[in-house]
């Protein structure tokens, strides 16, 4: 039983280790700010969290750099309607995250 729990713990730990290039970090901030001037690390992280929670329910996530800003602008109007985001602030945070990390 102990062995099973140990294996389970290892799998969950590996699984939860976030892929670094999707979660915004301080090192990426200057590059992100070039695409979205004024974006803060906190806002980018909030956008990432919203993207993970609200978009992966219907489809597998696309890597943000799979699209350019104009590509995301085409996709987002339809998708944001389905993402069930509660406030304009959340919508903006999600948009800014995707734009900042776009191709």
């Amino acid at each position: 039983m102990k062995k099973v729990l140990l294996i389970l713990n290892c799998i969950i730990s590996i699984g939860c280790a976030t892929v670094s290039n999707l979660k915004p970090n301080e090192k990426q901030l200057p590059i992100m700010q070039r695409k979205v001037p004024g974006i803060s690390l906190e806002e980018a992280r909030q956008g990432f969290k919203l993207y993970k929670f609200n978009c992966a329910g219907c489809h597998n996530l696309h890597k943000p750099d799979a699209y350019s800003i104009s590509g995301w602008e085409k996709v987002l109007p339809e998708m944001l309607g389905k993402a069930k985001l509660s406030s304009e602030k959340d919508i903006q945070a999600l948009k800014n995250y995707l734009f900042a990390k776009s191709k």
């Binding site: 280790a17 990432f48 993970k52 992966a56």
Partner: peptide, 13 residues
């Protein structure tokens, strides 16, 4: 309950 994502994380669990 989803613990991690198959795209955003190394492994979806």
């Amino acid at each position: 309950v989803k613990l991690s994502d198959p795209v955003a994380n190394k492994l979806g669990v």
